[in-house]
Design a protein around this nucleic acid. Structure first.
Lengths: 204, 204
DNA sequence: AAGATAGTTGACCGATTGGTCTAGTCGGGC
DNA sequence: GCCCGACTAGACCAATCGGTCAACTATCTT
């Protein structure tokens, strides 16, 4: 088959950057094309609408991140340390992005989902599905922590949802207030929410 | 001074409805005017831009809700019951609105703040200020609960922020997933986050 | 080299966007 | 009764919006 193009990826990359930094509504198809170095025709060759491009963008981004998630939440890592690694990872990434764009961007799934959820079923379903996948990492880490006696969590699913909500609330607030500090402190908050049993400082 | 008009309020009311239900970006000035029964001229007589109208809308809405907040978080009410009342209030209101518009709308401050925060400083500042006011209700309820020995909260400010984030994360998820269930269960989650000391079921 | 397939180009479209402006209407104070 | 300031009416604007389309080009297979 003739001619292989990386344009589709360049378009989803450009869309992720622009929509995440600004918003779905404030990002025009023209702007996405310009950043991707594409013309309108190419855009609508790959995607049938702006909405569909957005769903594809979230999907593509999630596929990229999944490997990192698997690494951080690997079963070989002590369960509570998985959370530390994950929260550090997100924090560092957002702090890095802030240097470039001047803003703490929070979680694209939440921003986009909450903006277009009521109006666009395709995007909503995509966001839903990805969020579902993500909470599962939390869930099994919590289950493992419980099994090892590190925390008391008779209902790992509920606890996972709770921590998930708490973290996402913090991410949203970090975006709104443009403040990375909330995220810096979250590891401690998470321990509190999880009910980590206290060990004396410095204990091995 | 001749002629007093309620148009300003009708415009902010219309704006709140439309922006909350859909989004800032998806709501046009024309649509707001139509719902308010106003013409463009009136709109730009009262507000100098869509952005300023939005800030004024949030402000006006907050002023309306403040009385309810004061009532629910009254010092005469047992501190933990204040949260129950508040969570019930929000739940019932969102469930009611769902009947009309078919969607769980979550918190307008979060939706709007997270959508336009990076692009509109006026709106961001307004959202910030209101969120600050709201968390203070949590804070003093927690302080009171701690004083009465109902919970252990040596740092009420931190605990308030934590519960606030957790609740707002839940509200955001409720909007994205269009599911009121998460909110129905939140009173229990809140008790968990607050670390309410367990009393045997049925204890007086 | 030919043909089929995959991708690109950019002009074009009607609708809608946020916003302006001028002319006018209404109603209370004097 | 008239004047002034608060408010309304709605035509108008350039810019931009998401989306279409027919013509074109590049690359692989045979």
């Amino acid at each position: 088959m003739p001619r292989v193009s990386d344009m589709k990826e360049r378009l989803t990359d450009a869309a992720m950057e622009l929509i995440w930094e600004n918003s779905y509504g404030a990002t025009s198809v023209d702007a996405i094309c310009e950043r991707a170095g594409a013309k309108k025709g190419s855009f609508y060759y790959f995607f049938k609408s702006k909405s569909q491009l957005t769903a594809a963008t979230l999907e593509a981004d999630w596929n990229k991140r999944k490997a990192d998630m698997d690494r951080m939440f690997s079963s070989t890592i002590p369960p509570l340390e998985r959370f530390d690694r994950y929260f550090d990872y997100v924090h560092d990434r957002l702090a890095e992005l802030q240097k470039t764009c001047g803003s703490i961007l929070g979680c694209p799934l939440l921003t986009i989902g909450s903006e277009v959820g009521t109006q666009d079923q395709v995007v909503r379903d995509t966001v839903d599905r990805i969020l579902d996948s993500k909470v599962k990492y939390f869930e099994s880490a919590i289950r493992d922590a419980h099994a090892q006696g590190l925390i008391e969590a008779p209902d790992p699913e509920a606890k996972a949802k709770m921590l998930f909500a708490c973290y996402h609330g913090t991410l949203t607030q970090a975006r709104i207030q443009n403040d990375v500090g909330l995220l810096r402190d979250f590891k401690d908050v998470a321990k509190d929410v999880l009910g980590v049993k206290h060990v004396p400082a410095g204990a091995s």
